[in-house]
Every structure is written in structure tokens, then in C-alpha cells.
Design a protein around this nucleic acid. Structure first.
Lengths: 126, 126
DNA sequence: CCAGAATTGAGAATAGAGTATCATGTGTAG
DNA sequence: CTACACATGATACTCTATTCTCAATTCTGG
């Protein structure tokens, strides 16, 4: 049994509203805009509950703090801007990943992260 | 100026001897087999020095502790066994990664990590 | 509305990775 | 060989991310 609370609603809404994975801090700030006074511990507890229900996914990108996003966005990967450090969702995937491993290995999932410069950062400068 | 010491030699040899990225702890153990008494701080200091010289690379894989490997292994990616948690080097890469991003984004590098079951773990069980 | 279970906020506590400190030991140029 | 900068080992410490604690509050079913 888990209760539905205004805090959890605000947290989930914040995640859904965002177009990219958010850090617990960012989630807290967004959720407090909806419903003030939400503590970081509550964010972590809610994320844990949502992850157990497979409603939220953890997005771990080397060099960036852990982020979370709704699980209903389908299979996708991420782009990290080396300048602003923001994470962007990408659509699509690539083929032939299985060919990279020896025949006696079985591949069950994969992560792809692209790094570079996003549109905003690339336009602003040279 | 940096000196060549028995500790650093042992650390570098350990990294070269391995066929996969190692954690600082694993490096320490391996290096101590060569030359006893090497402390963890020394391992970190040596790794820092080697990374500054681009002789060693940091390999960060979500869900696994940070690992290090020699930089002369060329462009490659990694496979993580979900059972034994070991990291394996993979050869080859995939094409068309640039097509995943909007035209006004520029991709400068990428990480690909495959997860599944390695040969040893897959053979041992069903 | 009521009871009891679940949740919350705040801050302390923990965990893991890496760094600082400092007295001592070692490598290298000359 | 000598001087001296650099490196080492042990340990304490920092930093960041996350969990725990606990009293107080909020849900939900009936």
C-alpha cells in the first residue's frame, strides 16, 4: 500500500512536465513550485517508490549527477552538452549492437550517451 | 618532472596486464602482487599522473565503481555482465550515431555500454 | 469521523570515491 | 655521492549522494 499525497503528485508532475531527466534537487525545486515545503528526503523516498512501480527511471550519466525521468518515454538515449551540462532526450536508436560482443555473450540492454554541444550553446558562440 | 618509482611501474604493469578496466582497489591488489606495500593514495596519485599524461583513461559505467585502463587500446566500448559485474572490452563500434541528434547539435564523442550475461556466467547456468 | 498505517520534514548519519597532511623514503641531475 | 625535489603510506578528511531517525502529520477504508 502506498498513499497518494500532494508531495508525490507534485514530484510526478514535475518529472512529467520536464523534457529531460532531472536531478533530485531540480525535482525538489519544481515540486515546491507546485506545493511548497517538500523536503529532499521526500523526493528520494518518492523516487524510490516510483521506481519500484517502474513509473520512473534512473538515468546515470558518467560525469553528471544522477537524474530521473518518467518511464513512459519509451526506449531512448541521451545527449549531454559539454558546455551547459544539460541532458537531452534523443529519439531513435542504432542497429547491430549485438555484433559487438562475442557469440557466447548475451546482450540484454544498452546505454548510449552522446556528448557534444547543444543547439543553444553552439549558436551563442563560435 | 615526475619520477619513475617501483610503485608506479607496478601500477602501470597491473593495468597493462589486465584485459579489462580495473578499480583502484583492484589495481592496488595487483600492484601489491608485484611490489608489496602500495597504498591506495599512491594508486590514486599515480592514476592522476598517468591521466594527465594521457596514458590512462577513466572508464565510468553507471552502476559500477569507476575503473581505469591504459589509453593505448584505441576506441572501444564496454560490456558489463549483470551477474559477475565484470567489465569487458569490446572491439568495434557502430555507425550513424550522428543521426540521433538534431541537426544543430554537434556530437564530439560517445559512450556505449552493453549489459547482459558474459560467456562464463551464461555457461555455468541455464 | 476513527484508527492505524504510511508519509513527511529537517537534520543527523552513512557510504563511497577521492584528496590533504605530514613525516619519511626515494629518484635524479650534476 | 649529494642535494633536493618528488613520491610514499597511513590516516584523517572532504564531498556528494542518499538514507535514517523521529516526532508530527496525512491518508484510506470502514
Amino acid at each position: 500500500m502506498s498513499y497518494s499525497t500532494r508531495q508525490r503528485e507534485a514530484i510526478l508532475n514535475t518529472l512529467r512536465r520536464a523534457d529531460r531527466p532531472l536531478t533530485p534537487q531540480e525535482i525538489r525545486e519544481g515540486a515546491n513550485a507546485d506545493s511548497a515545503g517538500i523536503g529532499l528526503a521526500t523526493v528520494y523516498r518518492a523516487l524510490k517508490t516510483f521506481m519500484a512501480r517502474k513509473e520512473v527511471l534512473l538515468v546515470e550519466i558518467p560525469g553528471n549527477p544522477p537524474c530521473y525521468e518518467p518511464a513512459d518515454r519509451g526506449h531512448h538515449h541521451h545527449f549531454v552538452c559539454d558546455r551547459c551540462r544539460h541532458i537531452f532526450d534523443l529519439r531513435g536508436c542504432v542497429q547491430d549492437l549485438d555484433t559487438l560482443v562475442p557469440r557466447d555473450f548475451s546482450v540484454q540492454r544498452h546505454d548510449i550517451t552522446l556528448y557534444g554541444v547543444c543547439a543553444a550553446c553552439g549558436t551563442g558562440e563560435g
